[in-house]
Amino acid sequence: MKMTKSLLAVISLTVLLSGCSGVGVKPWERDIMATKAMQLNTQPNITAFHDHNYFSKEGSSGGRTFDGGGCGCN
């Protein structure tokens, strides 16, 4: 699958990059990363609503996490 291949390439590139010094931060540079606003899922209830709602209105699902949706709406 072409998509899988290119994805693997991106992942290995990212891992490679982060081994170098240019990408990433030192432990004491995590001030911004540590703030609430920078967390990945700051409002889980809203995210769950979005996932469920879009799953029931559209043909696609998944991405951020798993696909599927556990409801009979699609």
């Binding site: 990212t14 931060v25 990945l40 998944g62 996490t65």
Partner: peptide, 17 residues
């Protein structure tokens, strides 16, 4: 998930079902 620099967090996911 990759911390790119002090202000940028990047996430890449692949899923198949």
């Amino acid at each position: 998930t990759q911390v790119m620099n002090r202000i940028w967090l990047f996430q890449l996911n692949y899923n198949i079902g």
